[in-house]
Write a protein that binds this DNA or RNA. Sequence first.
DNA 1: CTCATAGTACGGCAGCCATCGAAATTTGAC
DNA 2: GTCAAATTTCGATGGCTGCCGTACTATGAG
Lengths: 112, 112
Amino acid sequence: MPTTTAVRELPHPAREEIRLEAVLHALADPVRLRIVTELSTHGEGEDNGATCSQVELPVSASTATHHFRVLREAGVINQCYRGTAKINCLRRTDLDTRFPGLLDAVLHAAAS
Amino acid sequence: MPTTTAVRELPHPAREEIRLEAVLHALADPVRLRIVTELSTHGEGEDNGATCSQVELPVSASTATHHFRVLREAGVINQCYRGTAKINCLRRTDLDTRFPGLLDAVLHAAAS
DNA sequence: CTCATAGTACGGCAGCCATCGAAATTTGAC
DNA sequence: GTCAAATTTCGATGGCTGCCGTACTATGAG
């Protein structure tokens, strides 16, 4: 183990690797859909996201971790560490490029 | 049991009862997504749909029945009997009304 | 009536998945 | 170094889900 590598990287699928079925599956869960709608009120930049604990969820912390990971591995959100916290933000541009209109349609539908 | 009631009705959710999560979950399966894209090439009228066996699927007949039912119960497709066959068609109008742009975005994404 | 066709119901099996609590890790503050 | 906060990892559990084959039902043709 190196002494102090302060950066912890997290695996994200590249834009072209994002699969439609994975995205749909990620969005099909009520807890994850809530995370996404919550993040949609934040910006996309790494300075604008929300930490995991800022998003109020009706599940335990470990379950929340699970849902955030599913969203990240599906390519829906981007996660990066800032100190002990973890910043989450939607991958709007990537999703809009890959699946035009999909995110907007889901967000609009979820808002009703 | 009545003697010969030739009509077999199938339960469908009303337009307002269609839930976003159920639709997303229904579309998240590769077999069901294939059914939907296949049906998208047919009209919406009861005379334009496709029978179950017309849609070629890499699963057994009983599994196909299961997937068609999931789509129907989610409100994605409409099913009605015509003799011994069963006609399936997309509920385009209902979906477009309830979740504008969603079906088109998914179909367009699935086509790539 | 008999038969073939189209689809269904049932039971079972394996794998995934949402959930939790408890213990561990990482980092910043003191 | 010590401590607290944020998040993760682990193991377990129960439920849902996809899949199948077999047996069954419903309908139309002959």
